[in-house]
Amino acid sequence: MLELNQLTKTFHPGTPNEVRALRGVNLTIEDGSFVVVIGTNGSGKSTLLNAVAGSFFVDTGSIRLRGEDVTRWPEHRRAKFIGRVFQNPFTGTAPHLSIAENLALAAKRGRARGCGWALNSSLSSDLRERVRQMGLGMEDRLSNAIGSLSGGQRQSLTLLMAGLIKPDLLLLDEHTAALDPKSADQVIRLTDDMIRRDKLTTMMVTHSMHQAAYLGDRLIMMVRGQVIHDFRGTEKQRLTPEALLARFEEVRRLEQLDEAAAEQLRRQYV
């Protein structure tokens, strides 16, 4: 279970560039729930995920994971509980290491790393099996440098790595946004399969209204550093991409965003 209590974060406080990226976010995510996060550009979605992962400390508020207060934990310590896939396919893998070595690193996520061999034969065959199950035909190329793969392949492997040891929380930040449509579909299918199979507690940011409507069992919408809508259960099941777009329009009226921002919204989502 993840509990966020009154999170705030301001970048460059006290300067002309001041950005209040999070303005009091309250959110509780139960174990096994798959939460889709949508919102306008700059509404603080990535900031929220980064705050949870520990990329920086929040200014105020608290973050509890599995009942533990992790608010002041550095990122590498939280990694014991958290699996992540980033928007950029290059962020999640070490390009000059082989596929097998990248996976071996992920097999030790959050654990002590000592002087045992990183790739013993039992781990190697385990990893090969996991890669085979993905069905992308990469199991015979495990010794190739991961940098030689396509973005979609790398993102699929990053996803596998994030779930290799079952994480208490999976964070996906627009992890298909940089991919071509075909790879994006593939990665989304793998994502959904993995989350269902392992009943992973997940937060997934997306810009695709299609993904937002048809994936997950809960949806939150962020505007200006706050969660303004929270759909769950049957309400979430009934959502359609069109209904979500209508919500964005409503947000526009309520928040009286200027016309330019609305135009940007339309370009992006329609």
């Binding site: 990694a79 014991k80 999640g92 070490a94 290491l97 690193l105 996520r109 061999w117």
Partner: peptide
């Protein structure tokens, strides 16, 4: 080739990635 040594190589290759995997860069 050990877990520690491999993590060190990854630290040079992609610090963001290895931090997300729990290593104190």
């Amino acid at each position: 080739r050990t877990n520690l040594g491999l993590a060190m190589r990854a630290t040079g290759d992609n610090p963001d990635m290895i931090r997300a995997l729990g290593v104190d860069v």
